[in-house]
Amino acid sequence: MNDIDEIVKGIYLKEPRAIGRAISIIEDGDQRAGALLKQINAKNIQESTILGITGPIGTGKSTIINQLIAHYRKQGNRVGIVAIDPSSPVSGGAFLGDRIRMMRHAMDKDVVVRSMATRGKQGGLCAAAAAAVRIMICSGCDPVIIETVGVGQAEIDVVRLADITILVLAPGVGDEIQMMKAGIIEIADIVVVNKAECPGADSLFMELENVLHQRNCTVCRVIAREAYGIEKLAVFIGVIDKERRKSGQFTNKRKQTRETEIIDYAIEMMRDELRRRLKEYPGNYTGDPRTIARKLIDDICIAELDTSKRNCPEVFL
């Protein structure tokens, strides 16, 4: 299972090994990543919906996803899940625990779950997660659900990949004010108050309705453990999806996401080149970092101009 053609074929044939390996190749920045990505241009990519589920640790995101999987499976859909947890900044390791809540689907080959760690990269994570999503869509998944812990910019970036973003809060878990400050509440299309049976859920619900009523954002109550409110949540998701596809908002957002993705890739590619050039830099680059950065960029642009001059002299000379 190493030849790229074989892996690509395997993805379309829904082979778990091929899908898993393909995602690792992208995630590890393997030299074959480019060749692989080139070949997985899903025609069905526009038809599939990408859901982003975010919120503080412990609010019940994975449990909700577990229930959503059951819902979509009942409808006959194949479902993909990319569950992202933070890497430890100290060891670089990570405990990826989302899957525990979804084990009841472990024997179902039409439920594709991949746990991912942030690995300290930002744009890079976005690229790896986006590729994982695309690979899953290629293998026939619709929807694909991305779970992230909504605390940092990296997570917001990942959620931007989603067509529809669901913020999960719960009474007494995490800091709701922090959520609002972090701006996550602003990109949410649906806010879920999970653990609705617990004390404090009603006041959290009303508070959120107050904050969100001037914006077109739905708040709903869920008890994920008992699957209460899940059907309704799925209906909300379906309505938003249908509306946006009709209005063209869906396509617009996809286009924006694509632009972001391209820029992310470009920046990642540029990073190595910049590092190389900075090492060759005369002196030990003291002084204003911004000025030096500007000069680095200018140098690259000039070098670029030089090569293009060489390539088409009649235009430039």
Binding site: S88, V90, G92, G93, F95, I100, M103
Partner: peptide
């Protein structure tokens, strides 16, 4: 936990699998 602290990414299945 030890594996995570050693730099591994660890996925746990939970009990009774």
């Amino acid at each position: 936990r030890s594996l995570r602290d050693d730099g591994f990414e660890v996925i746990y299945t939970g009990i009774r699998r």
